[in-house]
Design a protein around this nucleic acid. Structure first.
Lengths: 139, 139
DNA sequence: CTGATATTAGAACTTATGTTCTATATTATT
DNA sequence: AATAATATAGAACATAAGTTCTAATATCAG
């Protein structure tokens, strides 16, 4: 069964009332620029963009579930990893040993069912970890 | 001059002709599901998603420019890298030495203005390199 | 109190990546 | 034909990341 069909059934197959959307000037402008660049109708471009963003969102939900299985400390380490820090830098920031970071990364990768940090960074590429920059706030 | 146009000018900083968008049933459903999940207005979620997709698109354009500066061989190596292959695996696939791959990666990273493969994989995370799986087709 | 997790840390490896530099042969471009 | 770019390859070294183990505290839920 396609995801769409499943989704529709889950919702009780209601006939959708064709709701309209409006976007602010800035978004409209960017949309028009992009449509212009690609010589395509603005509505079509908007459609494609929204489809893309939605699929990304739903894909991210699976990783969100795995994220929630991490301990507080593991989340902190993963966050800093995704912010681009190396094991050594993370150890310094959290004031623990390099080997401890390796332990946390090992466990985190296992819980994410991923094989290396590169995959992890890619999987969570769109997540905003800026709030995790200053560990103190989370301890 | 129409009354509306006159009014807009009189009021200054006119909102551009507020163009409306409609999306098909499937998109509407997903939007509503997501809005429901997050207890937020559908229009607001749509706004956020569109903003996200647009910024991703424009960011990708910069990397596309850099990608086009790569030589054919460098593109091949970067593609396989982003597909998750290691230097050694790429060397085997392309039937060249490990050191050659290192050269190509070094040059490619420089052209992309990135520091390591992790950043590269993240930057091109949404690109589809499946066509590059079989090098023969591109040589 | 007690088992289950979490947090910390290390040894002893192995592999993978990154850096700097050099160098030759092959293609394009002018 | 001469220059520039590309593709190839290596040495020699440095750092980073991943693997397999073990193990001591600490904390929390039942």
């Amino acid at each position: 069964m396609l995801f769409w069909e499943w989704l529709r059934k889950a919702l009780g197959s209601s006939p959708a009332q064709q709701r309209t959307f409006t976007f602010d000037n800035q978004l409209n402008h960017m949309l028009r620029v992009l449509a212009e660049q690609e010589s395509r109708p603005v509505q079509q471009v908007a459609n494609e963009l929204l489809t893309y963003a939605l699929s990304e969102r739903f894909a991210a939900q699976e990783y969100l579930r795995r994220w929630q299985r991490l301990s507080r400390r593991e989340q902190q380490v993963v966050a800093l990893l995704c912010l681009g820090y190396s094991y050594r830098q993370i150890a310094e920031q959290l004031i623990v040993s390099y080997d401890t970071i390796k332990s946390h990364v090992r466990n985190s990768l296992h819980k994410f069912e991923l094989n290396n940090v590169s995959e992890l960074r890619r999987a969570l590429a769109d997540w905003d970890f800026s709030q995790w920059q200053h560990p103190a706030r989370h301890l």
